[in-house]
Nucleic acid binder design. Structure first.
Length: 113
DNA sequence: TGCTTGACTTACG
DNA sequence: CCGTAAGCCAAGC
């Protein structure tokens, strides 16, 4: 197991239920490319909360969106129910590792791209 | 060694 | 909101 894989999987495993993280955000944390993060999740095994990692649009892995939707509903993850496809409300669900220590700070709003 | 591929992102029209 | 383009990084062939 590479150090990079170990870091990524470690961070993914640290994401609390009801929260998600983007590929790009993870990539910035481990200082690598966003595509690399996706590759690690694909080959990192299914014993990880892969549904808590979504792309910049707030969508999970397209090939398992159904399974991800179940998980989101089960974990009460903030979703944008307005859209036909499963989509996470990143403005509320976005999470970062450093946020664990400073939980008193309010979440910062995200502009609409 | 070199080219293709992909569970991605950001920017521009 | 949608399509296009360029940048990105590791794995596979």
């Amino acid at each position: 197991m590479d150090d990079l894989t170990e870091q990524v999987l470690g961070i993914v495993a640290s994401i609390p239920a009801g929260r998600v993280m983007t590929y790009g955000g993870l990539a910035r944390e481990v200082d690598t490319g966003a595509r690399t993060v996706g590759r690690i999740l694909h080959g990192g095994g299914h014993d990880i909360p892969w549904w808590r990692v979504v792309n910049a649009d707030g969508r999970p892995y397209s090939g398992a969106a159904d399974r991800a939707r179940i998980k989101f509903l089960n974990e009460s993850t903030p979703l944008l129910s307005d859209d036909p496809d499963v989509r996470v409300d990143l403005a509320q669900a976005r999470w970062a590792p450093a946020e664990t220590t400073a939980s008193t700070e309010p979440v910062q709003p995200q502009q609409d791209h």
